[in-house]
Amino acid sequence: MIRSTLFQHRTRTSISGFMTASLLLFWTSGASASLYSKATHYLIDQQIKAGCVDGVGRFDHKGVFEVDLNGDGKLDLVLSHQGLHCSDTMARSSKCDVQFCSILVYFRQGKLLKKQDEFVGYILSFRAAPEPVFDIAEIDGTVTQWHPRASHTPTHP
């Protein structure tokens, strides 16, 4: 299991403890696709090229979260390959296995978004207010509640 430095502050529960109804989620990922920043559009395009064999596809609302993760007032980014739909015969991102996908975390630095972390999981739900919280299924069968603002920011190389 991949552990993330950003993923250190969490609350764990059994995935079986989640009711089936919790999978029917109300997604509020922020802006519509046309309102994403140029940096977000650039990274979406890069991840489509990385995840789709023919380099053609699209992210839906389950894969793009442009939100202030660290409380600095700037929009950061979480990209989950679970929301990437490819136009090739594979249809699903090559960065996913049967249940789990690559999740990338970017913090805004000026006009750019810098990759801070990458881990494997499946985002079950997201709440933006009063601060962002993600419920993420992990490979070991647990659900982790990730509070990005309470996590330690990783050191930069």
Rank of each mutant, 00 (worst) to 15 (best):
72 D>Y: 13
92 R>V: 01
131 E>T: 09
30 G>D: 06
88 D>K: 07
93 S>L: 04
133 V>G: 00
59 F>V: 02
85 H>T: 04
122 Y>L: 04
14 S>L: 13
94 S>R: 14
24 L>R: 01
86 C>P: 05
92 R>Y: 02
116 Q>D: 03
96 C>Q: 06
79 L>P: 04
15 I>H: 06
111 K>S: 07
152 H>Q: 13
124 L>F: 03
69 L>I: 11
37 S>W: 07
48 I>S: 15
39 A>K: 01
46 Q>A: 13
60 D>H: 04
77 L>V: 08
40 T>Q: 09
129 A>T: 15
2 I>R: 05
91 A>I: 12
4 S>P: 00
17 G>Q: 08
116 Q>A: 12
48 I>L: 12
24 L>A: 05
41 H>N: 13
83 G>E: 02
57 G>C: 05
139 I>K: 08
55 G>Q: 07
5 T>I: 14
143 V>A: 05
143 V>R: 04
140 D>C: 03
115 K>S: 12
58 R>C: 14
80 S>K: 05
138 E>I: 14
9 H>S: 10
141 G>C: 09
69 L>W: 11
41 H>M: 14
34 S>R: 09
5 T>G: 12
3 R>E: 07
26 F>C: 06
28 T>A: 01
30 G>T: 03
146 W>C: 01
88 D>M: 11
61 H>I: 11
84 L>Q: 01
89 T>D: 07
54 D>M: 03
2 I>N: 09
57 G>P: 05
5 T>W: 10
107 F>E: 10
117 D>T: 01
73 G>E: 15
126 F>L: 07
95 K>C: 13
147 H>C: 01
151 S>E: 03
27 W>E: 06
109 Q>E: 09
111 K>G: 15
156 H>M: 06
54 D>T: 06
95 K>V: 08
115 K>W: 11
11 T>W: 12
1 M>R: 12
133 V>W: 00
146 W>M: 02
150 A>H: 02
79 L>I: 14
12 R>G: 04
124 L>C: 00
11 T>M: 08
157 P>D: 11
134 F>N: 01
86 C>Y: 03
66 E>A: 03
58 R>T: 12
73 G>Q: 11
98 V>N: 06
154 P>M: 09
24 L>F: 07
27 W>Q: 04
102 S>D: 15
40 T>E: 02
95 K>W: 13
33 A>D: 10
132 P>S: 09
23 L>C: 03
39 A>P: 02
75 L>T: 01
144 T>H: 13
105 V>G: 04
101 C>T: 01
139 I>F: 03
41 H>G: 07
72 D>H: 14
60 D>T: 04
31 A>I: 14
153 T>Q: 08
149 R>H: 05
96 C>Y: 09
43 L>A: 00
63 G>I: 01
128 A>K: 13
82 Q>T: 05
68 D>H: 11
4 S>V: 02
21 A>L: 09
135 D>N: 06
155 T>R: 15
8 Q>Y: 15
8 Q>L: 08
117 D>Y: 00
47 Q>S: 13
39 A>R: 01
53 V>I: 09
119 F>W: 14
23 L>D: 03
135 D>E: 04
149 R>Q: 10
84 L>P: 02
90 M>Y: 11
83 G>L: 01
78 V>W: 08
108 R>T: 09
80 S>H: 03
58 R>K: 10
71 G>F: 14
78 V>E: 07
97 D>P: 05
146 W>D: 03
